[in-house]
């Protein structure tokens, strides 16, 4: 396949109110939903309603993971994201991350509350190779008051203990924060989180802010999406399709391959069991959460992986 044919494309629908269809580009990122929907926390803003008793999606075995990693080589996958649920509920998580790192750069998305010194010591050894092992730790504010209401009593301190442990082994975790405040407060919240991380002794604080996805538990909390918050035909004209997660990613679950890490409750998100076919499968952007992805872009990937289309709020330099 030529480079030109590996670019994502959008097909508009004659009906202007219908969702456009995205034909994906090259598969850059393979997500591994290693603990399905199982999580030790029950966050009020979770977009899949993960929790201690949600077994809608189950654990991936290390053999499942190995098979998908092998398949991914032929597809030219660039990087791996390991997620759940809470990945550190998986009894084989250290082996999974070590294995993934032997194929390429790997990111694990965790709430940080279950990290044990033995895990981190083994992972620091595994991460001494060529590729980066990135930890993304989710918190929801700079202190327990802003975090624990969403993530559960005591969860802030437990997450930050995990953060401290990682830092002590030389990792530079990316603190990932879901925006549950007004956008205007972004600079202030960001400043406070960076200050908090520095106070804990982290000399290189890294922070990623994500928009809230008003589906799953978050739909109950914030009221979900308005009827006109949808991607419709025409909205992908002159749009940088690389910004859409589904243009370059797929998710491996124990129930098949999913279109993106967000729509795991959507039946049409399941693209079957064949990764090669699923990687090329077109998808109608009919879901309300697609609107958030369209609006913000690159919401799931690490900073620097996809260049934002218009990074400056202060436009007009060239005028």
């Amino acid at each position: 396949m030529s480079l030109e044919h590996s670019r994502p494309r959008a097909r508009s629908h004659p009906d202007p109110t219908a969702p456009p269809i995205l034909e994906p580009g090259h598969l850059d990122a393979l997500w591994l939903q290693v603990t399905g929907t199982l999580c030790n926390l029950r966050c009020g803003h979770c977009f899949i309603s993960c929790g201690p008793d949600n077994r809608a999606l189950g654990l991936l075995s290390i053999e499942d993971v190995r098979r998908r990693l092998e398949e991914s080589v032929g597809l030219g996958v660039r990087e791996y994201y390991v997620t759940g649920g809470e990945p550190f509920l998986h009894p084989g998580i250290v082996d999974i991350l070590t294995l993934a790192l032997s194929y390429g750069p790997t990111t694990v998305l965790t709430n940080g509350t279950l990290l044990k010194p033995r895990h981190v010591e083994l992972l620091a050894a595994a991460a001494a190779g060529r590729f980066s092992l990135e930890f993304r730790i989710s918190i929801d504010g700079p202190d327990p008051a802003s975090n624990d209401g969403l993530r559960g009593e005591g969860s802030f301190e437990r997450a930050m203990e995990g953060f401290d442990l990682l830092v002590s082994f030389g990792f530079l975790p990316i603190v990932t924060v879901v925006r549950t405040w007004e956008t205007e407060a972004d600079p202030e919240v960001y400043r406070r989180i960076v200050a908090m991380l520095r106070e804990r002794g982290c000399e290189k604080p890294r922070v990623k802010t994500m928009p809230a996805l008003r589906i799953g538990a978050e739909a109950q909390r914030s009221g979900g999406y308005a009827a006109d918050e949808r991607v419709v035909s025409g909205m992908l004209d002159d749009y940088d399709l690389d910004q859409l997660v589904c243009a370059h990613a797929r998710v491996v679950t124990d129930h098949g391959i999913w279109v993106c890490p967000i729509l795991l409750d959507a039946p049409d998100g399941n693209l079957g069991d064949d990764l090669t076919v699923a990687a090329r499968a077109p998808f109608a952007l009919s879901h309300a959460a697609c609107h958030t992805c369209w609006l913000h872009g690159a919401i799931c990937s690490n900073p620097g992986v996809v260049a934002p289309e218009t990074p400056f709020a202060t436009a007009g330099a060239a005028t």
Binding site: L3, S6, S72, G76, R78, P105, R130, S132, V305
Partner: peptide, 26 residues
């Protein structure tokens, strides 16, 4: 990168499989 002028190809975040794919398609 061959597909995007502002794509970062860092050493530690780029798999061999991806680089081989870039060469093949180029």
């Amino acid at each position: 990168s061959p597909r995007r002028a502002n794509e970062f190809l860092w050493e530690s975040s780029t798999s061999d499989a991806f680089l081989a794919w870039l060469l093949d398609t180029s």
